[in-house]
């Protein structure tokens, strides 16, 4: 079933075209990777899908519905969750309170919201840190908090923006099963990553963006053997995790 459909999506900033007539779709239950050299427009695509930016052209469909013009919070309520590349926990709030913020949107009763938040934190393995200050957590755990917050929005589609960046290889190998578990719960995942081996091992399909254009699409094997993709990455510092 087509969950997300992106039709001729473009974004111009003044004279610069960040995203150029991109067309793709994501089916329910998939884990789709999005790769490309730096500056290819990956985060811009995420911003367009999640509503932080308005497309210059093109349309976005979610579950068959046209969501192109909707604002970020409306898209979140429809079931699109996202994490940010640079983690942004709310300051002045504990880990638990951070995750309660989204659960309170969907469950106004603070008691219920707190339970749901604890549940999510348990799923990502952070429930020991409920009362902690996010600033005091190790980086890897702050990234998990970011994921927990997004999961707490009960998304159908989860946009993960470089969720593995900055993690060492052991932390990465701990995070991958988490991504699988998220899919098993019925969440479709669309993820931007630079750590190739990790991404290839977890994705069903991979999309490749270069300078705003979709240059390749296919299984991880197909994509890594694609000459155009290899050319785009030549000279690029790719982390072989």
């Amino acid at each position: 079933m087509r969950l997300l459909q992106v039709d001729r999506l473009s974004k111009h900033f003044g004279g610069v075209t960040a995203v150029n007539e991109v067309i793709f779709e994501i089916r329910q239950g998939e884990i789709v990777g999005l790769i490309g050299p730096n500056g290819a427009g990956k985060t811009t695509v995420f911003n367009l899908i999640s509503g932080l930016l308005h497309p210059s052209q093109g349309r976005i469909y979610f579950g068959g519905k046209d969501i192109t013009g909707l604002r970020p919070h409306q898209k979140s309520l429809l079931g699109i969750g996202r994490t940010f590349q640079i983690v942004r926990p709310f300051d002045g709030m504990t880990v638990l309170e951070n995750v309660m913020v989204p659960t309170l949107v969907r469950h106004r009763n603070p008691q219920k919201a707190r339970e749901m938040a604890r549940g999510v934190l348990r799923d990502v393995g952070l429930d020991a840190f409920c009362e902690a200050n996010p600033q005091n957590l190790p980086y890897a755990y702050r990234k998990r908090l970011e994921v927990a917050r997004a999961l707490a929005t009960e998304p159908k589609l989860l946009l993960l923006d470089e969720v593995l960046a900055g993690l060492n290889s052991r932390e990465v190998s701990e995070a991958l099963p988490l991504i699988h578990r998220i899919r098993e719960r019925g969440v479709t995942i669309f993820m931007i990553e630079h750590i190739m081996t990790a991404l290839m091992s977890v994705s069903d399909r991979v999309l490749v963006l270069e300078q705003g254009e979709l240059i390749a699409e296919g299984t991880p094997k197909e994509v890594t053997e694609n000459p155009r993709v290899i050319k785009a990455y030549l000279g690029e510092n790719v982390s072989i995790g």
Binding site: S50, R71, F84, G92
Partner: peptide, 14 residues
């Protein structure tokens, strides 16, 4: 309080 801390992140959460 979330809005005070980071309005964009708050919007992204619904």
């Amino acid at each position: 309080r979330a809005i005070a801390s980071d309005e964009e992140a708050a919007q992204a959460l619904g």
